[in-house]
Structure formats: C-alpha cells, structure tokens
Amino acid sequence: MTTTRTRVLAGAALAAGLFCSAAPAFAALTSPEALAYVVAADALNNNVAVPPQPQSTFPPGGTKTLVGLTVGPFATNATLTATTAGDPTTGTSSASATVDQLSLTLGPALTGELTGVSSTCNADPGGATGNGVIASGTVTVLGGQTTLQANAPKNTSLTVPGLGDVILNEQSTDANGVITVNAVHLTLLPALGGANVIVGHVECGGAPAAATVPMINTQVGLIGGSLAAAAVFGTVYLRRRA
C-alpha cells in the first residue's frame, strides 16, 4: 500500500512539474519600450555637451526630425530622423535613427565624415534584435585619415591613433532583455579631454502581451490547480484506504 501511494503522489508531482515548466518565458519588462536619437556627445573638457537630438521615446512613440543641425561637434544639412513605436497588446516595440550625412569636428585636430547612418531594433516577448550601419565614414586626426568599415559586424572595434577607440554597430542587451545599438560610438582619450560621441542610437525592449500580464496563461493556472487538487484528493483517498 505504501508503494502504491508513493507512486501516485510521485506521478502527480511529476505531471504538475512538467506542466508548469511548459509555461512560456517572457522578458522582464511589464510593458514594451523603445528609444531613439541620432546624435549625442558628453563633455569634452566640460566645454561640449550635446543632449540626444532628435529624440523619440515609446510610449507614446512617433517620429522626431531635425532638418539640418549645427551644434557642438555635429554639423549637417541633412534631415535627422528618430522614430519609435510599440504595441502593448502584443508586447512589441521598434525604433530607428537615421541621417544621410554628418560631419564631426572636435577641435582643430580631429574631424570625421559619416554617410548613410542607420540604426534599427525590434523587440517582442521572446527577445530583441538590432543593427547599426554606415554606408561610409572617415576619421581624420592631425591629417591622418582612417576609413571606417561600412556595414560592419556587431561590436567592430577600431583604434584610431591619437584619438582613441571607435566601435561600429555597437550592441548590448541588459538583464531586462532591452537591446541597445549605436551605429558609431567614439571614445576619446583623456589627452583630448575625454568624451563619448554617439551617432545612431536605438533601444528596444519587449514584454508579455497585455492580456497575459496578470496571469501568464489562464489555462496553465487552471490545469495546474486541477493537478494540485488531484494530488491532494489522491493522498486523502489513499490514507482512507490505508
């Protein structure tokens, strides 16, 4: 009798465990989010600070544009466009940041030219993906020119003599499943005052669909509860039989 009771209880526990493990895994966010901006730079000897421009955030989402820009190290006659969107009912989000042509000037010794900058990302309850590219680009330091790789693989790092590091298609994902992409990220050496320059920035994070937030799966909850109840009733029944 003891053996039979043990088998019944073990079977019920195994079924409940297997069923619970089948519940889908969602991102840690409770609602989708997205962010996009085209350019930003922080302090160069505390003399240069450019806040993210233009910037779009979801929610509420939408498109922000600047027609031409001359601020801090950045200059262009092109249109800068940042767009974000999302849908809480499906737990999805998206973002893009683009500019056709952009010039950089960081003092008399450093200049740069970028064309065809485009960063994008998309997220859903299962995760997020993104990409940041340029069609062409150069960085010139004290007359020495370095060509930047077009359509570079993610996290392509380049050391520019006299400047520091340039990362192309920089990508990272945080603990909440939010992906961050920078088409170009320049990190300047302390000898030049120290600064971070970002071109083409997007972030995307997915979340459980709105209908599933209170309970991941209603059927999982009902069936799981039924299995637990069956295990309890089985225990009571076996004890009475014993």
Rank of each mutant, 00 (worst) to 15 (best):
A22Q: 03
A25Q: 13
A25L: 14
A25R: 14
A25E: 12
T30S: 15
T30R: 11
T30N: 12
S31D: 04
P32H: 04
P32G: 02
L35T: 10
A36N: 05
Y37A: 05
V39K: 01
A43L: 06
A43I: 03
L44F: 08
L44T: 11
N45H: 05
N45M: 03
N46D: 15
N46M: 06
V50M: 11
T57H: 11
P59K: 15
P59A: 15
P60K: 10
P60D: 14
G62I: 13
G62Y: 13
G62L: 14
K64G: 01
V67Q: 11
V67H: 12
L69N: 06
T70Q: 14
G72P: 01
G72R: 04
P73S: 02
F74C: 06
T76L: 05
T76K: 01
N77S: 13
A78R: 03
L80N: 11
L80P: 12
T81A: 14
T81H: 09
T81V: 15
A82L: 03
T83F: 06
T84S: 12
T84G: 14
A85Y: 03
A85P: 01
G86E: 02
D87T: 15
P88E: 09
P88I: 07
T89H: 11
T90D: 09
T92L: 04
S94W: 09
S94N: 14
A95E: 02
S96Q: 10
S96M: 04
V99R: 08
V99K: 07
V99S: 01
D100S: 15
Q101W: 02
L102P: 04
T105D: 08
T105V: 12
G107H: 09
G107Y: 09
P108K: 11
L110A: 11
L110R: 03
T111W: 00
T111I: 00
T111V: 01
L114Y: 06
L114I: 07
G116V: 00
G116Y: 01
V117M: 10
V117N: 04
S118T: 11
S118M: 06
S119K: 00
S119T: 09
T120N: 04
C121T: 02
N122F: 02
A123H: 03
D124C: 03
P125N: 08
P125R: 11
T129M: 05
T129D: 12
T129F: 01
G132R: 07
I134C: 11
I134Y: 08
A135E: 14
A135D: 14
S136Y: 07
V139H: 10
